[in-house]
């Protein structure tokens, strides 16, 4: 699992790659939370996530909730097949920033 942080003027993009699963989850949790705290607008690029399980999913939910609680914006982009499969299974894709349901303005709140 690797996290590459790309800082842009208005927001940061975190490029995740590799496994997003239980064995790595503790490490992931601290790193991602920290990244979230530092940025107002954060984008998670999931295009390179090879594998994701329920633990990974939970972490995404946590991040999303923290972002909301702290009035920050968290966007998930470039979902890999592995990520999509999980979100589909849990029937939660709408929750994670489907623009049709949650337009940007609403999301930024």
């Amino acid at each position: 699992m690797q996290i590459h942080i790309e800082n842009l003027p208005n927001h940061s993009i975190l490029h995740l790659s590799g496994h997003f699963t239980l064995p790595q989850i503790k490490k992931l949790k601290s790193e991602l939370l920290e990244a979230l705290l530092q940025q107002r607008v954060l984008e998670l690029d999931l295009s390179a996530v090879a594998d994701m399980d329920s633990a990974g999913f939970q972490l995404l939910v946590l991040l999303k909730r923290e972002a909301k609680a702290h009035q920050k914006s968290l966007r998930l982009t470039g979902h890999s097949a592995a990520v999509l499969s999980v979100l589909d299974s849990y029937q939660v894709s709408a929750y994670f920033g489907d623009p049709q349901v949650l337009p940007k303005e609403v999301d930024i709140l």
Partner: peptide, 25 residues
Amino acid sequence: VNLTTLCEHMPLAEEMDPENCYLGF
């Protein structure tokens, strides 16, 4: 046919143990 995922019991970030399972359906 239909499913709703629940994770109401996930505690605040500090207390949340990512290895715990907080999921319900």
